[in-house]
């Protein structure tokens, strides 16, 4: 949303089509300004954030995919420049664990539910 500000600040970057701009904006929300504290580059006034916004716009303008842009950023600025970590290296754990948690939750819920379905007899507590 805020990344529109980038478009105003960008003098050197190529002009993007509307869909490219949307992609670039979404990416800018996911890339961390590495000199700030936990702010995405779309929300930072820092000089480096502005440079990174220009770079993202350039890469999108060259026709790179989202994954390629993320890889490019992670290679230059480190894994911690991505607020949405990649599912590789140390990051895979972050994506696999929620799935395992979901499986575990499903298992326990099903086990609790597996009581006999024929319960339409008088309630002993009532």
């Amino acid at each position: 949303m805020i990344a529109v500000l980038a478009a105003i600040l960008l003098a050197s970057a190529p002009a993007l089509t509307e869909t490219e701009q949307e992609r670039a904006n979404a990416l800018m929300d996911e890339i961390r300004c590495v000199v700030c504290e936990g702010q995405p580059i779309s929300e930072s006034n820092a000089g480096l954030a502005q440079d990174m916004r220009v770079k993202v716009t350039e890469l999108v303008g060259e026709g790179r995919s989202d994954a390629e842009v993320r890889d490019w950023i992670a290679d230059r600025y480190g894994e911690s420049a991505l607020l949405r970590p990649r599912a590789r290296g140390a990051g895979w754990f972050l994506w696999v664990t929620p799935l395992l948690l979901a499986a575990a939750a499903l298992f326990f819920v099903l086990r609790l539910m597996r009581v006999d379905r024929n319960v339409n007899r008088p309630d002993p507590d009532a």
Binding site: D29, G78, E79, S80, A81, L82
Partner: peptide
């Protein structure tokens, strides 16, 4: 543990 840096921010939590 390993000195590796990884950042987890809004986009991750929104997705999970």
């Amino acid at each position: 543990a390993s000195g590796d840096d990884v950042a987890v921010g809004g986009p991750y939590f929104e997705l999970t």
